[in-house]
Lab assay of single mutants.
Amino acid sequence: MKVIFLKDVKGKGKKGEIKNVADGYARNFLFKQGLAIEATPANLKALE
C-alpha cells in the first residue's frame, strides 16, 4: 500500500515521502499512530 508519511518513522521513511509499505503495517500502526495517510489521488493533490 502506498502511504504518505506525516512524520519521520525510523527505518521506514521521512515526513513528506511516499512509499510502499505492507498493508497491515499501514493500517495497524502508521494510520492509528497518525504517522501516515493513504496515498490516494486526493491526498497526493493536497500534499502539493
Score class of each variant (00 low, 15 high):
44 L>M: 11
13 G>Y: 12
27 R>W: 10
3 V>E: 00
17 E>M: 06
47 L>G: 05
13 G>H: 11
7 K>F: 14
45 K>Y: 08
37 I>M: 11
10 K>S: 11
18 I>F: 03
31 F>N: 02
12 K>H: 15
20 N>G: 07
47 L>R: 07
26 A>G: 05
12 K>G: 13
42 A>M: 08
25 Y>A: 06
42 A>R: 09
14 K>R: 13
39 A>W: 12
8 D>N: 10
30 L>F: 03
18 I>N: 01
35 L>N: 02
21 V>E: 03
26 A>T: 09
36 A>E: 01
26 A>L: 13
18 I>V: 14
25 Y>P: 06
33 Q>V: 10
17 E>V: 03
32 K>R: 11
24 G>D: 15
6 L>M: 08
8 D>Y: 07
32 K>T: 13
13 G>F: 12
31 F>P: 02
12 K>W: 15
18 I>H: 02
6 L>G: 01
23 D>F: 12
43 N>M: 08
44 L>E: 06
10 K>R: 13
37 I>Q: 06
24 G>Q: 13
40 T>H: 06
40 T>I: 05
46 A>N: 12
2 K>L: 14
18 I>A: 03
38 E>A: 09
43 N>H: 08
46 A>H: 12
37 I>F: 03
45 K>P: 05
7 K>L: 09
15 K>P: 05
29 F>H: 12
41 P>M: 11
45 K>L: 14
34 G>M: 08
32 K>L: 14
24 G>H: 14
29 F>P: 04
1 M>N: 05
28 N>P: 00
16 G>F: 08
40 T>A: 04
37 I>D: 02
44 L>H: 05
3 V>T: 01
15 K>L: 08
16 G>N: 07
21 V>M: 09
18 I>T: 05
37 I>E: 05
17 E>N: 04
7 K>W: 08
35 L>S: 04
15 K>D: 03
7 K>T: 12
45 K>Q: 13
31 F>D: 03
45 K>R: 13
23 D>W: 11
10 K>Y: 13
46 A>Q: 12
20 N>F: 15
14 K>Y: 12
41 P>T: 09
31 F>L: 12
41 P>V: 11
48 E>D: 12
45 K>F: 08
2 K>P: 07
5 F>W: 02
39 A>D: 02
47 L>P: 05
27 R>I: 15
13 G>R: 01
33 Q>G: 08
8 D>Q: 04
3 V>Q: 00
16 G>W: 11
14 K>T: 09
33 Q>T: 10
46 A>K: 14
8 D>G: 05
42 A>W: 03
37 I>L: 10
22 A>T: 13
40 T>L: 04
27 R>E: 11
41 P>L: 12
25 Y>M: 07
14 K>G: 05
9 V>A: 04
48 E>H: 10
22 A>E: 13
46 A>F: 13
45 K>V: 11
34 G>N: 11
38 E>V: 06
6 L>V: 10
7 K>S: 11
12 K>N: 09
21 V>S: 02
38 E>Y: 05
18 I>Q: 04
38 E>Q: 09
46 A>P: 05
9 V>D: 01
27 R>V: 12
42 A>G: 12
39 A>G: 05
25 Y>K: 07
7 K>Y: 12
17 E>I: 03
1 M>Y: 07
24 G>L: 11
25 Y>F: 11
8 D>K: 05
40 T>V: 04
4 I>G: 01
43 N>G: 06
28 N>W: 10
17 E>L: 02
43 N>K: 06
32 K>D: 12
12 K>R: 14
24 G>A: 14
43 N>F: 06
19 K>H: 10
4 I>Q: 02
36 A>G: 04
44 L>R: 07
36 A>S: 01
31 F>G: 02
29 F>L: 10
44 L>A: 05
45 K>M: 13
45 K>E: 14
17 E>S: 05
35 L>A: 06
42 A>T: 10
2 K>H: 09
28 N>R: 10
20 N>H: 13
14 K>F: 12
18 I>Y: 03
4 I>R: 03
43 N>S: 07
26 A>H: 06
11 G>D: 09
6 L>H: 01
16 G>S: 04
2 K>W: 15
39 A>N: 02
27 R>A: 08
6 L>F: 03
43 N>E: 05
5 F>T: 01
12 K>T: 14
3 V>K: 00
12 K>Q: 15
34 G>T: 03
31 F>Y: 07
41 P>H: 10
11 G>R: 04
21 V>T: 03
32 K>F: 09
36 A>P: 01
10 K>M: 14
26 A>I: 09
46 A>D: 10
46 A>T: 12
10 K>E: 14
41 P>A: 12
36 A>F: 01
4 I>N: 01
35 L>G: 02
30 L>E: 01
40 T>Y: 04
19 K>M: 12
25 Y>V: 08
9 V>S: 02
16 G>H: 09
20 N>P: 08
14 K>E: 08
10 K>I: 13
26 A>D: 09
39 A>H: 05
29 F>R: 07
36 A>H: 00
28 N>K: 12
47 L>K: 05
19 K>F: 06
33 Q>M: 15
6 L>I: 11
11 G>A: 05
35 L>F: 12
48 E>L: 14
11 G>K: 05
43 N>I: 06
7 K>M: 11
2 K>T: 12
37 I>A: 07
21 V>Q: 03
18 I>P: 01
39 A>V: 05
30 L>I: 02
36 A>K: 00
23 D>H: 13
32 K>P: 15
21 V>N: 00
47 L>S: 07
3 V>G: 00
19 K>V: 12
28 N>L: 10
36 A>N: 00
5 F>A: 00
31 F>K: 03
19 K>I: 10
22 A>L: 11
46 A>V: 11
16 G>I: 01
33 Q>R: 13
13 G>S: 04
25 Y>I: 08
47 L>I: 11
19 K>R: 12
5 F>E: 00
39 A>T: 02
43 N>W: 05
27 R>G: 04
23 D>M: 13
41 P>W: 08
24 G>P: 12
13 G>L: 02
13 G>I: 05
32 K>H: 09
40 T>P: 04
17 E>R: 02
22 A>D: 15
33 Q>N: 15
21 V>D: 02
11 G>W: 09
45 K>A: 15
1 M>A: 05
8 D>L: 03
39 A>K: 02
2 K>S: 09
37 I>W: 05
28 N>V: 06
6 L>A: 02
21 V>R: 00
3 V>D: 00
9 V>E: 01
5 F>M: 04
1 M>K: 07
